[in-house]
Design a protein around this nucleic acid. Structure first.
Length: 482
RNA sequence: GGCCUUAUCGUCUAACGGUUUAGGACGUAGCCCUCUCAAGGCUGAAAUACGGGUUCGAUUCCCGUUAAGGCUACCA
């Protein structure tokens, strides 16, 4: 096999869709696995949909996910340019070539005329399809209209053959009756190509060997097959990926939740978790392993193991994966993320030293799914409690509690260090002298220093806060709760 | 409506005719651990859409039905 060349070809609509991420990922994995080339191509042939800055956003988001392209915008490559609006002449030439060879023809119908035609067809329960009225025009008429500068399009002429078929790597042989295929517009009246023309021309010119894309393209693939045939070009291999679905099984859409990779990034998902998750929507290694880094995916990925049925984008599993990756993150990386998150929190103005934050991380890392929760779930590490959780107060704060806590604070004040063991021993001594169970002190003490009834082990908590802060907080609670 | 695709626990999936009382993971229920919340450990409930074939034997192959989805633009 010649060198593998694949591409991810999104439209610059402003953000990267998670389905797009999955498509990009599979292309990337396939390219890396075969020491091939992964190309990024921007399909901006619909001028109405163009969004400013979309390309930069796309590139950045892919990079965030760890997906680097080999050739593409801002990077170049021999097959460039990689933005379709910069390749218009190419498409126009190729469209003209098809007209010349008789595989395509000019048409001059207005949108209103086409609309009326379709309505009439639907009324008669026919498949809406161009009725080839332009083909009845005399060559001289066509020339006259063209010379007069009338708006025109180029349509492909579906040949009179029974079927168009192709072999798809994930779906096997797929066959369409030619009568079902429309004389698709290839070149629009504004001089821009449609997806079909641009896609085929570029894929050929860029030497694409495998077209790996979403299943929504399966139905238009016969048009592409026909185009390759018209040009006499070698056909790439096709692989149509199963769709990503909403919980109600419809195609994943904005309406039913977040679809932009950026949204997930903003929510605090780690790129490795999102990538791992999305990779497993439609693919698996064939055994029971579930956690894969990008490099491991490169080593294991094959198109043969891609499934055929759509996959629901399930947040629960993604959350779990994020938790797993967070739990395993090296201290230094988590530390950097916490610092970043802190800058964006109510505690942005405070200063904390590195050792302190590291201890917070170690106390909390198995209790959080997102970095943000290091702060949100345990604000008491960053400031004294501003309130005391009422249900916990009701449950743990008894009339005799204040005298107990006073005794505890007294005992703590004699401590020389703030180690877990010191606190534990001091608490035990106090419990003994008051003839109490440890729990009778532990729960109200936790409430007093943290304001809540849950969190890391009490002695860890105290040790991190330190002796002075602990006593200060106990006194504050005594004053405020009573 | 037409065409195309798909169909295993609620969800992601394993099984490439027999090693299957259909395996794993998430979620969920219970128990253990325990100073709380988690984490962790153990246990449980939970699926081959339906109907026909083919075969000694079908989750697996074929046909049909049903259901779901995609496409049906001078959008991609």
């Amino acid at each position: 096999m010649s060198q593998v060349r694949v591409r991810f070809a999104p439209s610059p609509t402003g953000y990267l869709h998670v389905g797009g991420l999955r498509t990009a990922l599979y292309n990337y994995l396939f390219a890396r696995r075969h020491n091939g080339v992964f190309i990024l191509r921007i399909e901006d042939t619909d001028r109405a949909r163009y969004v400013e800055g979309a390309v930069e956003n796309l590139v950045q988001t892919l990079r965030w996910a760890g997906i680097e392209y080999d050739e593409g915008p801002e990077k170049g490559g021999t097959a460039g340019p990689f933005v379709q609006s910069e390749r218009l002449a190419l498409y126009q030439e190729h469209a003209a070539q098809l007209v010349k060879s008789g595989a395509a023809y000019y048409a001059f119908d207005t949108p209103e005329e086409l609309d009326a035609m379709r309505k009439a067809q639907e009324k008669e329960k026919l498949t809406p399809k161009y009725d080839r009225r332009a083909l009845r025009l005399a060559p001289a008429d066509v020339k006259a209209k063209l010379d007069a500068g009338l708006p025109s399009v180029v349509r492909m002429k579906v040949p009179d053959q029974p079927t168009v078929a192709f072999d798809d790597i994930v779906r096997g042989r797929v066959e369409f009756a030619s009568t079902q295929i429309d004389d698709q517009v290839l070149l629009k009246s504004d001089g821009y190509p449609t997806y079909h023309l641009a896609n085929v021309v570029d894929d050929h010119l860029m030497g694409i060997t495998h077209v790996i894309r979403g299943e929504e393209w399966l139905s238009s693939t016969p048009k592409h097959v026909l185009l390759y045939t018209f040009f006499g070009w070698e056909m790439p291999q096709f692989a149509h990926l199963p769709l990503l679905l909403n919980p109600d099984k419809s195609k994943l859409s904005k309406r039913q939740g977040d679809v932009a990779v950026e949204d997930y990034k903003k929510k605090g998902f780690l790129p490795e978790a999102l990538v791992n998750f999305v990779a497993f929507l439609g693919w698996n290694p064939g055994d029971e392993r579930e956690m894969f880094t990008l490099d491991e995916l490169v080593r294991e990925f094959t198109l043969e193991r891609v499934g055929k049925s759509g996959a629901v984008f399930n947040l629960d599993k993604l959350n779990w994966l994020n938790f797993q990756y967070l739990k395993r993150k090296p201290d230094a990386e988590l530390f950097a993320l916490l610092r970043e998150s802190l800058r964006d929190s109510p505690f942005a103005g405070n200063t904390y030293d590195d050792a302190y934050l590291l201890r917070v991380i170690n106390a909390m890392r198995e209790r959080v799914t997102f970095v943000r929760e290091l702060i949100d779930n345990s604000p008491y590490f960053f400031a004294p409690p501003s309130a005391y959780d009422p249900p916990t107060v009701k449950k743990r704060w008894k009339p005799e509690t204040s005298s107990h806590l006073k005794a505890l604070a007294e005992e703590f004040s004699r401590l020389e260090n703030s180690g877990q063991k010191e606190f534990e021993d001091a608490l035990q001594r106090t419990a003994e002298s008051l003839k109490l169970q440890n729990g009778d002190l532990i729960h109200p003490l936790r409430l007093a220093v943290s304001g809540t009834g849950s969190g890391p082990g009490l002695y860890d908590l105290l040790s991190i806060l330190g002796k002075d802060e602990t006593i200060k907080r106990v006194n504050a609670a005594l004053a405020r709760i009573g």
